[in-house]
Amino acid sequence: MSQVELKENIEMYINAVNEIRDSMNIIKGERYLANHKKTLLFSIIDMLSKGVFGENYGGNRTTMFEKFILMFCEWEHAERISLQQLVHLLNRTEEKQFSRLKDYAKTELYKFPSSIPVPFSYDPTYKELKKLMPKGESTILGVELLSLKHVSLLWKLRNSLVHEARAKGSSQLFDFESEPHYIHYSTIGTDSENNLIETEERWEMYHPVGFFNKLIDTALVNLRDYLEEQSINPYNNYDFDPLWIEVKQKDF
């Protein structure tokens, strides 16, 4: 295939992706509309990762998804560790070796402003937290600290929506915010004298629909250049065989 033909194929591919995405963004609904749009936009990300990586990484969808986000989407907080998730995890262990990390995490979470959407820039980096982990340890209760990265948690959200039609985290409260963020919730009760008091507080994550469109917009720009530089025809990474099932052995 000539370079001109390659560029034509790449342009046709990107135009097709945008056409499909446009049809997703105009769907209508009520209570669960945001979830449905996110589910569909996740499928675009899956499609693009397949187009660029093919069967690389052994066709491992998790790896392909995370690599794609990190390589093409320019999400600056993708590799930060979710403080909210870290605190939830640490609350489940009483091991003293994690006391320093637990104190730090709870102190930092307490600093989150409760009246506004809190961006993920408030979250620590892996390097910052690694210093507080027990020497030689990388897991808490068998959970890798790196699995609390936002890019990994985004994969968890994707699976929940795609396979269970169920979102994780908060519902939308701040219409003006297009970046992922934390939302503060309080439960109000009464004390022994019937005075109103805060009996519980928690933080929940929310990923707006606009965030997914931003990821895809950025990825398409970077993807076009990458496909051309690496001479990758994305159509070659999809199965267009009229036989829907995979043949396991060849008959000569």
Rank of each mutant, 00 (worst) to 15 (best):
S138V: 03
S99E: 15
K168W: 03
Y110W: 12
S192Y: 05
E144A: 00
T93G: 14
R31V: 05
E228D: 13
G58T: 11
L196I: 06
Y104M: 12
G29N: 10
E30G: 08
S121F: 04
T187N: 06
K37G: 09
T190N: 02
V87S: 11
N194K: 05
D191W: 01
T62Y: 13
N56T: 12
S171M: 02
R100Q: 15
P117G: 11
R202Y: 10
Q172W: 05
S186E: 09
F176W: 06
R202M: 08
Y185E: 03
L141A: 00
K250A: 15
Q85S: 15
D123S: 04
I140G: 00
K111C: 10
L227V: 09
N236Y: 15
A165I: 00
E204N: 06
I183W: 03
L153E: 01
Q230A: 12
L148S: 00
G54S: 09
L86R: 09
H150E: 05
I216V: 07
H184R: 02
D225Y: 12
Q230K: 11
M64G: 13
I26V: 11
V162L: 02
Q85D: 15
I81K: 07
R80Y: 15
I20M: 11
E229W: 11
Q85V: 14
I10N: 02
K96Y: 13
F174D: 04
S160W: 03
I232N: 11
K127T: 03
N159M: 00
K102T: 13
A165C: 01
N237I: 11
N194L: 05
L86N: 10
I116S: 10
Q84K: 15
I245W: 14
T199S: 08
L109G: 09
L40K: 09
